[in-house]
Amino acid sequence: MDKLNRRQALQVLGAAPALAGIAWTEAEAQQAHQHAQQARRSAVAAKVAYTPKFFTAHEMATITALTNLIIPKDDRSGGASEAGVPEFIDFMMVDQPDRQLLMRGGIRWVDSECRKRYGQTFFKGTAAQQAELCDALAYPAKARPEHSHGVRFFSAVRDLTATGFFTSKIGIADLDYKGNTFVPVWTGAPKEALDHLGVSYAPLSKWYPEESV
């Protein structure tokens, strides 16, 4: 198998106009590379310039508090707000407007419940009060029937928080995901992974004669 070194790999990756197919000129390669660079710069710029588009200040504060309770900072990685989760959820309200009612109404439901219980909104509650409310909503199978609307809201926030956190840079690093990279030669799984499952390539060597298995 031909092995690409890093320089060659970058050339191949950066430069491939749609119809060039086999050979491309230096100028085309340069142009393609600039396209890619520009796209990356725009994405970064867009993130920096981001401001809440849907939530009010109170709603944003409530969502931030909730997402940080759902995925807090620990010894391995930061919490939801460090990963940009509240901004992501706000963006999704505009991107997929069908989600708006559940979020806006859900926050109102939670605040109403907290006023009844504690005389103040969720955001203004003490840590103990917030935890008590979360405990009531976070386990759908155990939750009381009269909390069903809050449970549904909480589950939706939890799912959005998981996406927002684990698709962020710090979330992906937290998972130790090792892919999305240029692999010049595919060598299958390492021995320790095979051993973990009790499997081996040896019985399949007939199908993989060129691989050292």
Binding site: P140, T163, G179
Partner: peptide
């Protein structure tokens, strides 16, 4: 397996 995390990551973990 462990594929690149994406939108909908581990949705419905309560179930």
């Amino acid at each position: 397996g462990r594929r690149m995390p994406g939108f909908g990551f581990m949705g419905g973990i309560d179930r």
